[in-house]
Simulated assay, not measured.
Amino acid sequence: MNDICISCFGRLPDDSPRTGCEACEYSVHTWLRELPRHLVLLADMLTPDTGPARRGGVGRAHAPLPIRLDVLDLTGPGHPVLLADPHGDQTGGIPMTPLLYGWARFLAADYPSVRTDVHGTVHIERCDGALVRTGADVPGLCRWLAAYLPYAATRPWWDDLYEQLEQLLHRVRRLTHTRPVTRAKDAPCPLCSGWSLVERDDELHITCTICPAQLTPDEYDAHRAAVMPALASLALRLATAQQPAA
């Protein structure tokens, strides 16, 4: 049994079978939902912008490539693991589809499969591979992996999955110039009383930007219901007191 999440080193409940906490599992789930949304942008970015016509030389010894290699490195084919690179020629990393497919195959091989033979004997075996019914593309693989995240969060290799998906999404976001939506909350922080609580789309907890406070959505709703009526009443009294007499 583990008492510390191997991804964020947060505290796990006592006697928990998890190796990854609920918050980290939530983050990975949101990453898997987000990755397919970038495909349209990446496809549009595959062809480099030509720009306006120019007179004179541009300093090139040859014509530019008709595609962007950094985008192709993400969307093209490849191996699910990094190959040996003794000469330092490789750049980027593992493309999206091979990385997701590699993890789907690894998870399927680790997942126990239960079957009963004709004699009624129960057999526990390993799966031969991932059966992605909707197709082994990025959306299908993301949905398949998301369905097995509760199991993955109990395995000793959880941190490898977490880290590689996080790095993959960072590579995608650098190209598409996107970032998670962050929303400021209207209730003050319960620890430091600052108006500094924020909510991110890819994080389970609502966090404070000043102190280490973390609230689940339910905890924030309860906190807001407890403090906001009094604050609203105080604001109304102050506004009324500042109004000039008729």
Rank of each mutant, 00 (worst) to 15 (best):
F9W: 14
L12H: 09
D14H: 12
T19H: 15
A23L: 04
S27F: 05
S27E: 11
V28Q: 07
R33L: 12
E34T: 15
D44Y: 03
D44L: 07
T47W: 13
T50D: 15
P52G: 10
G56W: 11
R60N: 11
I67H: 13
L69Y: 04
T75M: 03
P77K: 02
D85F: 12
P86R: 01
G88V: 08
Q90Y: 14
I94P: 00
P98N: 09
A104K: 03
A104Y: 03
R105K: 13
A109F: 02
Y111K: 00
P112N: 03
P112S: 02
R115F: 12
C127P: 02
C127S: 13
C127T: 07
D128P: 05
L131M: 04
V132I: 06
T134C: 03
G135S: 12
D137E: 09
D137M: 03
D137A: 08
P139N: 12
C142P: 06
L145K: 00
A147E: 05
Y148T: 09
L149F: 10
P156K: 07
P156D: 10
W158T: 14
E166D: 10
L168C: 00
L169M: 09
R171W: 01
V172D: 00
R173C: 11
R174Y: 11
H177R: 13
T182D: 02
R183K: 15
C192G: 06
S196C: 15
D201P: 01
D201Q: 15
D202V: 07
D202H: 12
Q214W: 03
T216N: 00
E219C: 01
D221S: 12
D221Y: 03
D221E: 14
R224Y: 05
A225W: 01
A225L: 06
A226C: 05
P229D: 09
L231M: 15
L231K: 10
R237C: 04
L238R: 07
A241C: 02
A246Y: 10
